[in-house]
Design a protein around this nucleic acid. Structure first.
Lengths: 265, 265
DNA sequence: CCACATCGTCCCGCTCAGTGGAACGCATGT
DNA sequence: ACATGCGTTCCACTGAGCGGGACGATGTGG
């Protein structure tokens, strides 16, 4: 992942999307959104380029965001996302309730398997990773706070299988992008796979999101019977025993579901 | 910690601080800041009360923030912090680099001790918890993304001991609030304690932040010899063996420091 | 060594985005 | 029945915010 500091400016601003009239807030949000994993530090000019705003506007907005601690001033006249964003992010209810309830279970799974443990939620047609343990074990695409298309991941398929059909339809309509040669890319195959998952209660990912990496996942069901999250054990394909890990993951998922239900969702 | 959902509205808005002219951004930030651990969901009226804004203004701003996914609309006309905030928060560089490098070490510490493991940074005169493992073991005040005064915690004292003297001075000037009967509350005692920590390389917290809870902490030193973070093993006083855990924590802290240095901070 | 590009910063006049008081309909509780 | 709270909508006034343009510092290639 190592940011090579390459200047791949071929990134294009928001010249295409037809936003009617960008408000101050929208501009500021665009500024924050200009930062990503590969570009954690940006200068005024670069920010102006990425957001399509005037340099003077970026200058003023960034200054104000720094005062609000949503941005940090780094040396060389560059900016980074500020600590306040992290603090606010940790207060987001979905994240907090889930992690609070799940962390002990994730830790047990880690100790039992010594594989990478994922906790994720479904946001629209994508998976958002809420907590990850066992980092460093293997080099996968997942990142806490990161997104991946739901159809291409174990946790995603586990949730799609138990989500309202309309969600699956939207995923199909949004396309089934290929991440690896084994990614499911046809609506038919996806529907069949989801039926299989419902029958078995467990989802598998055999190198569908990352080559050489497999995973076993299970859905977490909340109060009203709707999927609230999913968790998975992930690792090199050779290290992932579907049967043994399947039991452990399902057990943890069921426990988590019960905990959430007891806590009133 | 369990939120008792008490309605302690005796919270007071920002009627005291003499902000010159609150800008749109400042208002929006105030809206986001109105949410806290005990109040994860707020309605328009409550938000207006907390921020001092007009109800109509809150209504419009909140609507815009929802469109930007910085807020979520919950049922009952209430709002919560939105997933986007979590995603942005996970991109904050200090958090990312630190956790990426530290997580494996924290996991090892957890497995070795089965106590609560803290990773924290110093922000001004307060400690911000960046990562916590071993949740549920014990009921302490720490929370990922949460803040505590530096002088009253193990990680805080570890960092103060190796921080520029000016930071300690600012902490003293900001006051040394008492969290428990054993919290250090006099400048003299603090200075002595910090000298002791520098001599030994390890900080202890004997029920200074939470009654019944102790911890062993060590500073993490980065490239330029400055403290970048601190980590600690925390648990019920009876369970914390200063000597045994001291070795483990110092070792992990040194390793983390080296890792950060090798990665170019 | 200079011409040129690009950076962050600052100024300032124009304008429209943003503000909040007031009024409305709807639940509550009294 | 009334009173009080809520979320929502409307709208006239105005000053906050915008960005073109200018400036000095820095870096780069001829």
């Amino acid at each position: 992942m190592r940011s090579t500091e390459r200047d791949d400016v071929a990134h294009a601003a928001s010249l295409d999307s037809p936003q009617p009239p960008p408000s101050v807030l929208a501009r500021a949000a665009a500024l924050l959104g200009a930062f990503d994993e590969a570009h954690p530090r940006l200068g005024v000019a670069e920010l102006a380029r990425r957001t399509g705003l005037a340099r003077s506007t970026v200058h003023r907005l960034a200054g104000e965001l720094v005062r609000l601690r949503l941005l940090d001033r780094a040396e060389g006249g560059t900016y980074r996302l500020g600590m306040r964003l992290f603090e606010l992010g940790e207060l987001v209810p979905t994240r907090r309730t889930l992690t609070d309830a799940a962390l002990p279970l994730l830790e047990d799974l880690l100790e039992a398997t010594h594989q990478r443990i994922h906790l994720a939620v479904l946001d629209g047609v994508e998976v958002v990773y809420v907590a990850i343990l066992g980092a460093g074990e293997v080099d996968v695409a997942s990142r806490t706070g990161g997104r991946l298309p739901a159809h291409a991941t174990g946790v995603g398929k586990a949730m799609l299988a138990y989500a309202p059909p309309e969600v699956v339809r939207r995923r199909v309509e949004a396309g089934l992008p290929r991440l690896t040669p084994r990614t499911i890319t046809t609506p038919g195959a996806l529907t069949r796979e989801l039926a299989r998952i419902r029958a078995e209660g467990t989802a598998y990912d055999r190198e569908e999101s990352t080559v050489g990496v497999s995973c076993v996942a299970a859905p977490v069901v909340g109060t009203d019977g709707r999927v609230r999250a999913a968790l998975s054990v992930t690792g090199r394909t050779a290290a992932i025993d579907p049967v043994r890990y399947g039991v452990a993951v399902r057990a943890a998922a069921v426990t988590l579901g019960r905990t959430l239900r007891e806590a009133g969702l």
